[in-house]
């Protein structure tokens, strides 16, 4: 792995940076030349100055922080019970038989479609928003966690038992670390889905948060602000994805090197 200094100047960073700058410069030029209407496609320099203005005012951080907070909260609401249910489904045949049909039925329904049902019970509350954003990620994590247990290597369990682990310790020291890489497959997918639904619900039902900000700026035709919202949603997406990867690397140091060997990193 190259050092940080060389990485900064490496092709991995330089090429995407160059393509982005070229595209933005082209956009800017096309607007100034009159080929793109500034009302619909404000020049990037205007968007950036709007962004800087909003950032200095602090409003933007409030929106971004709100969305981030909702995303984390709904993700945890999906992760904890989803993992528990999935592991139970993978471990106990009876649990699988009982829960599988329901999970299969609910899984294909887009999470946002649960919103009316949820607000019918919880009202247009913060909890309603969080719950809506958590449903599909919860099901996704449950399905993936169940399959993680099913693909658990039998000999690892035997080794754990033969070398003195049983009950809770067998779970914590063998089953959990053995399934963790596959659990994280579910977590990654769930985070992506959760992010989409969080922003979507915010657009429908929240004043605060980037989704609300974006929707509001469109309604009052502040087009620069609309683009600022889009950009921030993009960056927030990158930020949480990166955060989850950093967590995965921290929790599974043996996987970092394994994936690199397989050429996946």
């Amino acid at each position: 792995m190259p050092s940080h200094a060389t990485w900064l100047f490496s092709r991995e960073l330089a090429i995407p940076l160059a393509t982005s700058l070229i595209l933005l410069a082209a956009w800017e030029a096309l607007v100034h030349a009159g080929f793109l209407r500034a009302a619909f496609f404000p020049p990037p320099t205007n968007i950036v100055s709007t962004l800087l203005g909003l950032a200095a005012g602090g409003e933007l951080w409030l929106h971004a922080g709100t969305t981030l907070g909702r995303l984390i909260a709904s993700f945890l609401m999906a992760l904890i019970p989803g993992t528990a249910l999935g592991l139970a489904m993978g471990w106990w045949m009876g649990m699988r038989t009982a829960a599988d049909p329901l999970v299969r039925l609910l899984f294909p329904i887009p999470s946002i479609a649960f919103f009316p049902v949820v607000i019918f019970y919880l009202g247009l509350s913060e909890w309603g928003l969080l719950l809506t954003a958590a449903i599909t990620p919860f099901l996704l994590i449950a399905v993936q966690s169940a399959s993680a247990v099913e693909s658990l290597e039998r000999t690892l369990l035997e080794a754990g038992r033969n070398y003195g682990a049983s009950g809770w310790r067998l779970f914590m020291r063998v089953i959990l670390p053995a399934t963790l890489p596959r659990l994280f497959i579910g977590y990654r997918l769930a985070l992506g889905v959760g992010f989409i639904v969080t922003v979507a619900v915010e657009m429908v039902a929240a004043k605060h948060g980037l989704g609300g900000f974006l929707w509001h700026s469109w309604q009052i035709l502040r087009i620069e602000e609309m683009y600022v919202g889009l950009i921030l949603i993009g960056f927030l997406g990158i930020f949480v994805t990166y955060g989850l990867e950093a967590l995965a690397d921290r929790l599974m140091p043996w996987q970092v090197d394994l994936l690199r060997l397989k050429g996946q990193r």
Binding site: E158, A159, G164, W254
Partner: peptide, 30 residues
């Protein structure tokens, strides 16, 4: 002392543990 210790054909080492951590596993459990 445990009654038995099994060596597996497919090794069955714990991939999340280093060599040393694998070797100490049973002592840790005890």
């Amino acid at each position: 002392r445990p009654k038995t210790a099994l060596v597996f054909q497919e090794y069955a080492l714990f991939p999340w543990r280093t060599v040393l951590e694998n070797v100490v596993f049973s002592l840790e459990m005890r």
